[in-house]
Design a protein around this nucleic acid. Structure first.
Lengths: 163, 163
DNA sequence: CATGAAACACACTCCCG
DNA sequence: CGGGAGTGTGTTTCATG
């Protein structure tokens, strides 16, 4: 698993900059902008997928439109923080569909979760099933999102990489 | 702006369930799985885009691979919380490339940010430019992500919608 | 070794039944 | 909605620098 710096040249970055925001964009269009042929652009995209720079191409859905209008940010504090305990918790989070994102972090809390649910009742059920019944969860605090100001997986690429 | 419940039938949901995780998947394949023709699947996808259920199709990049190995979760507490102040802060966040996500939330903090940076120096520079110099930012706390356990924008669709 | 041009295969679009 | 013809895109091959 080698997800670290695959030496990307400036062309790769310029391609990614356009492509990551809209994968429906024809390679031909990208090629025109960066000064490359269609084939060259696609070869590079294929390589970027293979080396893991592009993890996957996904569709971003509007949570409200699919019946999940509520977003919660949850800070979880664990009791035991041995490796095995952490690993177990991580795997539990991976398997929970409500957990859209999960970060293992420094600071007061051990984990930060982004949770999407259909209703507060559903959130309550989630906390019961996922947190309250876990003996190793010492405590957690919930922040309900009043607005999703900015979302997505888009990444800010360096404007001028090494030359 | 009508991003609310576009009445989705079970077929739509099953299509989305597959498509949202991999937009490269041929409509033909999806059609086989849900029992629909290629054309029907594409018609539905087009409609789902038009009504805003599908917000956009994006490529998820590996942050490390593009030189942004550090993820921080930042809880920001504002001083003045009048509408104008909130709006100004939101728009600032929208414009900052390091801010990958931003939620306006209830609870102790006013905003939760997911910030991606190349180094701790870059993070320090970010806090200076984005937070410390903002007179309306009362305080903020940073949690550095030791691991991105679960990421992405994938959403858990209801397993068995109305029949 | 990466590129560009062309041939090829495949996926999407549109129209009709 | 399904099926087909037409179009556009992605893929492969090959010759070139």
């Amino acid at each position: 698993m080698h997800k670290d710096d695959a030496n990307l040249d400036e062309l790769d970055l310029r391609i990614l900059e356009r492509y990551q925001h809209d994968t429906l964009l024809p390679a031909r269009t990208i090629g025109e902008e960066v000064g490359l042929s269609t084939a060259a652009v696609q070869r590079r995209l294929k390589r970027l997928r293979e080396v893991g720079v592009i993890r996957r191409e996904v569709a971003e859905l509007a949570p409200k439109a699919v019946g999940l209008p509520i977003t919660c940010v949850v800070a979880v504090d664990l009791d035991q923080e041995r490796t095995a305990d952490l690993e177990r918790f991580k795997q539990r989070m991976q398997g929970l569909p409500e957990v859209q994102q999960c970060y293992y972090v420094t600071g007061q809390a051990d984990f930060i979760l982004i949770v999407l649910v259909a209703s507060m009742e559903a959130y309550d059920a989630f906390t019961q099933r996922a947190l309250l019944t876990d003996a190793n969860v010492r405590s957690f605090t919930t922040s309900v999102a009043l607005e999703r100001v900015k979302t997505g997986v888009a990444v800010a690429l360096p404007p001028a990489p090494p030359r």
